[in-house]
Design a protein around this nucleic acid. Sequence first.
DNA 1: AACCATTGGTTCATATAATGACCCATATAT
DNA 2: ATATATGGGTCATTATATGAACCAATGGTT
Lengths: 261, 261
Amino acid sequence: MSTVDRALVLLDLFSEAMPESGLSELARLAGYDKATTRRFLISLGNHGYVEQDPETKKYRLGAALLRLAHVRETTFPVTDLVLPLLNGLRDETGETTHFSLAAGNSMATMMIAESPRANRVSLETGERLPLHCTASGIAWLAFAPEKTVQRLLAKPLKAQTKHSEIDPTRLRELIGAARECGIAVADQSYEDEVHGIAAPVFDHNAQASGAIAVATPVSRITPETSRQIKAAVYKAALDITKALGGLPDRGFYECQKVDLQ
Amino acid sequence: MSTVDRALVLLDLFSEAMPESGLSELARLAGYDKATTRRFLISLGNHGYVEQDPETKKYRLGAALLRLAHVRETTFPVTDLVLPLLNGLRDETGETTHFSLAAGNSMATMMIAESPRANRVSLETGERLPLHCTASGIAWLAFAPEKTVQRLLAKPLKAQTKHSEIDPTRLRELIGAARECGIAVADQSYEDEVHGIAAPVFDHNAQASGAIAVATPVSRITPETSRQIKAAVYKAALDITKALGGLPDRGFYECQKVDLQ
DNA sequence: AACCATTGGTTCATATAATGACCCATATAT
DNA sequence: ATATATGGGTCATTATATGAACCAATGGTT
């Protein structure tokens, strides 16, 4: 991994859950030496991508990112392309849908279309969800580079609920199953009462870059609704991939033939 | 300059005016070897900060930036803090105001509050303005590190209008004057008929990080309106600096005593 | 008040990773 | 057909990144 890569990892560490952090903590999280971490932070700071609070000495993301995001969005408006499709999926299923991108060791929620129902799953833009116990995460892992999967399964994983699967070999099976049928299911493995169904979205290299998911109160899941949602999610994943100029993995196409239970 | 710094320079090259670019062009603009540039782009791409169009092979800013900007904005909402003050300055002067951050060799427009008048100056968020012939640019240069000024003046500069000053020694004088009174004036030096009055905004290290400016049709500029706007801009610059947790340069405070013409 | 465990920050000999001249295939002008 | 772009890749040389050890300062604990 190049020096530049290592420096950029620091940016990935920041999230809504951890919007600012100290030098030692960042070094620990990234697994770098303190001196190295500090040099990286200074370089990032030179360009306005991080700033340091003069009081607390903590580092946070910098204002220059707003400019870049603005250029990106006015130039290549992902939101404009994806949101209508996400809304369509929401209307079709009647349930909350969301689009997320893989970011470091988690999925970052980029867009949400909430269900109109009173009893619905609700989440927030920017939320970061763990890979191993969410439908989106499993769907992404199923088409992610093998090395990424290995690295994730090597570490000890945290169970979010009593339904969470944290055994590496069992997780391998789940990932394998998702790869088989192009769809991942997470039944209350991230939060009790919440059922997730997700499919990967691909970039132009046929690499999974993110995922779309439908999140449902578990009470509304029946064999019928499940089948219906799976079919809708599968189709929407293809549509969004296409809208973003991506190319689905070869194997993903063949999933159409698989009986979606 | 460290390797990481050099890689990050590539991100700064992208703008609304140049939202995507090829390998050779980027290498040329940054002054790097093609191989080096390519390695940087790949590293940036690994983290989603740039992407490559598979057709044209051109590179553009990546989607991961949206996540970072989102975290930054929900965590440390600059817009929420600055926009009200910018609106206040607009209301006070009746003219279009904007806030910009220094980014590479230009000022990047971050926020705008447009004048309600029919005959008004109009600009766009994200626009990048040259340093040497805009009020914002001069205001920033006046309190920027000496090395930055030297580097800028070393290169040949482009005249935007027949009023643009491009002679290094004359520009030095303009910058010096701006440093004296904390205010920079640009009379039709970027665009004919447009008059700009700007003051720097400082970060927590008392370094100029950006500027606010009032842009006026030159027809409405009289000694009186000019004096009034200068006073308002000066005060707003202090307010915004404070709102952002910044600390004005020592010299900037003393400008209050200077007669603003 | 002495103690230990943190923190942010710094130094410098060593080892590792960055560099760029050179090469290739392809595409678009002349 | 020749010249000059382009994106991409290789590899010996060299410059840069690295991290153990080191401060000074802060904040609990005993």
